[in-house]
Design a protein around this nucleic acid. Structure first.
Length: 263
DNA sequence: GCGACAG
DNA sequence: ATCTTGTCGC
């Protein structure tokens, strides 16, 4: 697939001021409410070949891996829990990791990988934040707008915002609203949810929740519902887990390729 | 100056 | 994210 708003593709060579301005522009373009054509109830990991009437939405999981000075973007497309396509791409790293500016480091490889994808996704699940961001323009939001694709951000830790309740030891399925705080520019109210996707039945140790936030064209509640539906016994949703492992194998292949070219 | 900080 | 063995607890 190709970008719809290529003028918004993060440019690693721009100034920090320009980067932040672009993020505010992207946030203005983003829609943090349900505005997509498919029925969210039809998104699942159950590939019940019989129960499904018509076409289920295609969900893509997107993740990254790094190799020396290169970033590897990986995409795995799923329909009813079945992998229908995988794509990847490696590009040179042109920008360091800076909290709040992750898109400028990772977007290049992700855009390249998505360009290599033949399938036409209905929903994208990113590894990182969406609206839970200083300028409401985390990776999931930024790329969701660039491709005008409904998207969701799933992060393993919280960038900003304040949980409206205790997060530790919650039982499976529990969700705690994350509200905007002074770190989030010009916003108030719920910008995402901490979702307990998995929990030990009992014992001393507990599992941390994941932080779900709207990327583009999805509201916080639906985004959380969708992530829950995409989980299958593990802390992270399947699209993310599959993209993660695909990124690892792709990294190995690109590394091997580089090794051959150099000797 | 100190603390916080997606991947 | 990445460098890494064993190990404690589900």
């Amino acid at each position: 697939m190709d970008p719809v708003r290529s003028e918004f593709i993060p440019d690693p060579s721009s100034s920090r001021e320009e980067m932040e301005t672009l993020q505010r522009t992207v946030a203005d373009e983003a829609i943090f409410a349900d505005e997509f054509p498919f029925d969210p109830a039809t998104v699942s990991m159950a590939n019940t070949l019989t129960a499904t009437t018509g076409d289920s939405p295609i969900v893509v999981g997107i993740d990254q891996a790094f190799l020396d000075e290169r970033a590897v973007g990986a995409v795995v497309a799923l329909r009813d829990g079945e992998v229908v396509e995988r794509a990847s791409a490696a590009v040179d790293c042109e920008f360091p990791y800076i909290p709040g500016l992750l898109s400028f480091r990772e977007a290049g490889a992700i855009v390249a990988a998505l360009r290599n994808l033949d399938a036409e996704p209905d929903l994208a699940v990113f590894d990182g934040s969406g609206r839970i961001h200083y300028r409401e323009a985390g990776l999931a939001t930024h790329l969701g707008v660039v491709f005008d694709l409904p998207s969701i951000g799933v992060a393993k830790s919280l960038l900003c915002g304040t949980p409206q309740g205790s997060l530790d030891g919650r039982s499976e399925g529990a969700r705690v609203a994350i509200d905007a705080d002074e770190d989030v520019e010009g916003v108030e109210g719920t910008i995402g949810y901490a979702l307990q996707t998995r929990q030990y039945d009992s014992g001393n140790r507990h599992i941390n929740p994941v932080y779900v936030s709207p990327g583009h064209r999805v509201g916080p509640e639906t985004a959380t519902d969708l992530v829950e539906q995409l989980c299958d016994g593990y802390k992270l949703p399947e699209p993310t887990r599959l993209a993660d492992s695909h990124a690892a194998t792709a990294k190995g292949e690109f590394g091997e390729q580089a090794r051959n070219d150099g000797s």
